[in-house]
Nucleic acid binder design. Structure first.
Lengths: 128, 128
DNA sequence: CCTTGACCTTCCAGTGACTGGAACCCTTAT
DNA sequence: ATAAGGGTTCCAGTCACTGGAAGGTCAAGG
């Protein structure tokens, strides 16, 4: 399977797949012409990566998860620990963003937004 | 005022302030020894920047906001438009993260997390 | 006067996870 | 023979800093 087909199957851009090979997440074989030849296992890995990345895991986390996935004897608690840590980070980020959103939406509400130069948003930014 | 004092007043790291000068957001004077000399206006600008960045505005947005702030004749609607666009982006990001959080917390719930190799999290990552 | 330590300066490199683009090779069809 | 549409590598850029090296400046203490 060529790279564009692997891209189609996994939903990842070809560029990203090349990058994943460069950093050692996948190692497709090569045809005699130098083209990458993706097998079933490669596509599975890439799908796994696409899904993990979509859930916000970092590349290094993904590397670890892939390792656990391929380790038949891993303990599921290792995976769970990683996932819980990541979940906590996501929740923290959500809270940060919600705080930003709350402040910002107050400011937008407070600003009439007409042609006059008086602007509560700038006032807040300057003074807070 | 030296850079470390400006850093203390604004809460920004000295490194960040130097960076802001490099990209033209502030232009403090220099003492004869080459040290940066921050005046009131510089500190005000830096405070404005710290606050805007804390609300998640990009550097380029901050540059625009600073410009509007210093433009006595700006219309407040310009500011409001920028803020509303930014607010929409933040809200989109919150939704993305909430979707991640929901999926991930389901997976963490589903995973007993014991010493056995069976792991619903990895199963999901591999198949979804 | 010398040293020590805490400042300050500049410049360069690295971060994360790609993404864009140039320059060039391979294959297939016309 | 050529043109289109794959593929390849390598280099540079993104964003907003951050770390570190190498070196200049200043005030206090011995």
């Amino acid at each position: 399977m060529n790279i564009s087909q692997a891209a189609g199957e996994t939903g990842l851009p070809a560029k990203t797949i090349r990058y994943y090979e460069e950093i050692g997440l996948v190692t497709p074989l090569r045809d005699s012409n130098g083209y990458r030849a993706f097998g079933e296992a490669d596509v599975h890995k890439l799908t796994f990566l696409a899904r993990s990345r979509a859930l916000g895991f970092s590349i290094e986390d993904c590397r670890t998860l892939l390792g656990l996935w391929e380790d038949q004897s891993r303990a599921s608690s290792d995976v769970r620990t990683l996932a819980k840590e990541h979940l906590a980070q996501i929740e923290a980020k959500i809270e940060d963003l919600q705080a930003m959103r709350d402040t910002l939406s107050e400011l937008v509400e407070a600003c009439v937004g007409d042609d006059r130069p008086d602007c509560p948003i700038l006032k807040d930014l300057a003074s807070a």
